[in-house]
């Protein structure tokens, strides 16, 4: 249920973002989803890929520094208020969402969001109490690749 996410440091300069993408493409690794968070001088590129260990090796072999963090993928009802209901669960449990981003593809009638929490275990417990199971990595990669 925990999904490994790769994070890369990228300087805020033209062409820098293309480098890791090209490296992964050359290695035949498909990027399931990504998000970029930036400041004036630098950005952090977060990647979800199925073969994350190999992706990490490829990027590190090219001299990049990669951080691996565990995140959760959670299905969100694709209707007004869907996300708000989910966030309410975390708010009530006092769990902080560090950041989140969405998938472009859907799983059936639902959207999928990636969440990074300050306390991952607490988030999993809170979701379980609310009867929600995060999407497992296998489901995530397979279903998204079928779609």
């Amino acid at each position: 249920m925990r999904i490994p996410q790769l994070s890369l440091f990228i300087e805020n300069k033209p062409g820098r973002l293309a480098v890791p993408c090209r490296l992964l493409a050359q290695a035949g690794i498909n990027i399931v989803t990504l998000a970029l968070s930036d400041t004036q001088h630098f950005g952090i590129l977060r990647l979800i890929v199925r073969q994350w260990q190999r992706a990490k090796e490829v990027l590190e072999a090219a001299g990049m520094v990669v951080a691996v963090t565990e995140v959760l993928a959670v299905e969100v009802a694709d209707r007004p208020g869907g996300l708000a209901e989910l966030l309410e669960i975390f708010a009530q449990a006092g769990i902080n969402v560090e950041y989140m981003y969405a998938f472009t593809a859907r799983l059936g009638a639902k959207a999928v969001m990636i969440f990074r929490f300050d306390n991952l275990d607490a988030a999993i417990n809170a979701l379980a109490r609310a009867g929600i199971n995060p999407v497992s990595p296998i489901d995530l990669y397979e279903k998204l690749e079928e779609a």
Partner: peptide, 15 residues
């Protein structure tokens, strides 16, 4: 240089 000791997935942590 951003090394394995420095890299974080959060912008705030780097800032």
């Amino acid at each position: 240089e951003v090394t394995p000791q420095i890299i974080r997935d959060q912008v705030a942590a780097l800032e």
